[in-house]
């Protein structure tokens, strides 16, 4: 049992460490709140100019 638990825990720890390692890149690429808001504003304005629906329309759960 101890070996199984050790393996299981080490597997999960390895997964978390791996996520942390690989995610460094993702973290660097993540926008800040201000950047995200600016990005959204730009996207909304671009859609408005192009006569397309608002990309952040709130109420649609999904489309088929």
């Amino acid at each position: 049992m101890r070996k199984t638990v050790t393996l299981l825990v080490s597997g999960l720890v390895a997964a978390v460490l791996g996520v942390l390692a690989l995610g460094g890149v993702a973290a660097a690429a993540t926008t800040t709140d201000v950047e995200a808001a600016q990005e959204a504003k730009s996207a909304r304005e671009a859609a408005q100019k192009a006569g397309k629906p608002d990309p952040f329309a709130p109420e649609v759960y999904g489309t088929r």
Binding site: T31, A36, E39, A43, F56, A57, P58, V60
Partner: peptide, 12 residues
């Protein structure tokens, strides 16, 4: 029921 926030861009 669902929201598309500017601080969570591109997601509902």
């Amino acid at each position: 029921a669902y929201r598309a926030y500017p601080w969570n861009p591109g997601r509902v």
